[in-house]
Design a protein around this nucleic acid. Structure first.
Lengths: 147, 147
DNA sequence: AGAAAGTAAATCGTGCACGATATTATCGCA
DNA sequence: TGCGATAATATCGTGCACGATTTACTTTCT
């Protein structure tokens, strides 16, 4: 009776739709020389530049062991700089280069065209986003076990 | 004005929530010796057993180059068998072993406990799932370009 | 029948994602 | 002052995920 297919499960819906989103972005990002996770990192930096690796990781919920190599690749492409802070040699500060800042325009333009293609209206998209974020909040709180 | 943070974007909401779901499942799956993608593959096989690699890939939207090594790992753990079809030597048929079928009970039990912890009601979860699937459908249709 | 086209799966290389551990620097405190 | 604890980042190993290519087999079309 509970012979559910993956299609019935919300976990698979999330998994496959996140994947589909990434596929949808690919033709926009590849010409810009970016991967999807790299684009997300840049989005975060466009909102707040000159942050440490840890701060960035908290923003986009990735560990430093994921970010370090990714940031090195973005540095190699000339989109940002990684420099040890002078007052605390433990932290590495990430700063956008001019090229990194210029990507925002190109990426935003691409993303807007992209969203124009989907049938999701602005309000509807925001509603769905907030429901998804509320699920995320819920998921990140459950790990605590009662005493 | 359009200095959006990742938190404002539906693409990031999906990305981070899918990740959060995977983290939430981890403590349930690790004791069973499964990764999250492996669990999804098994879910698909519990719904329909004895399928080809290609059919499985269509079900869960993964390419054969992702599935082949994953299936080899599941085979090594004794959850399924991979055998070339007799009538068409190109296709490989995937069949659950008894151990693979037995995992369903354990996994379902774990998943039910898990969902009991989230505050999402049955109906609410189905609604959200359908909205996410509708977005996925939308995303997978846009790639076509007009003539 | 036999070559060309097509199909299914596998292989290879790159880039995430993360647990576990290592490295380096700072802080707290006797 | 100097030593243990803490903190920030990096390194390493495993497992996805996929584009591009390869291999093996089947179908199609002369």
């Amino acid at each position: 009776m509970d012979n559910l297919s993956p299609q019935d499960m919300i976990c698979f819906a999330l998994y496959s739709t996140a994947q589909a989103m990434q596929h949808a972005y690919k033709p926009l990002l590849t010409p810009l020389g970016l991967t999807y996770p790299q684009y997300i990192v840049l989005m975060s930096l466009w909102a707040e530049d000159d942050v440490t690796v840890g701060q960035l990781g908290r923003q986009i919920m990735l560990e430093t062991n994921t970010l370090t190599p990714l940031l090195k690749r973005l540095e190699a492409k000339g989109f940002l700089t990684r420099r040890r802070s002078a007052d605390d040699e433990r932290v590495v500060r990430i700063r956008l280069t001019e090229a990194g800042r210029e990507m925002q325009t190109a990426a935003n333009t691409a993303a807007q065209c992209f969203f124009a293609q989907t049938e999701l209206g602005q309000d509807q998209a925001k509603l769905l986003r907030d429901q998804i974020l509320s699920l995320r909040k819920n998921l990140r709180e459950t790990p605590e076990k009662p005493a």
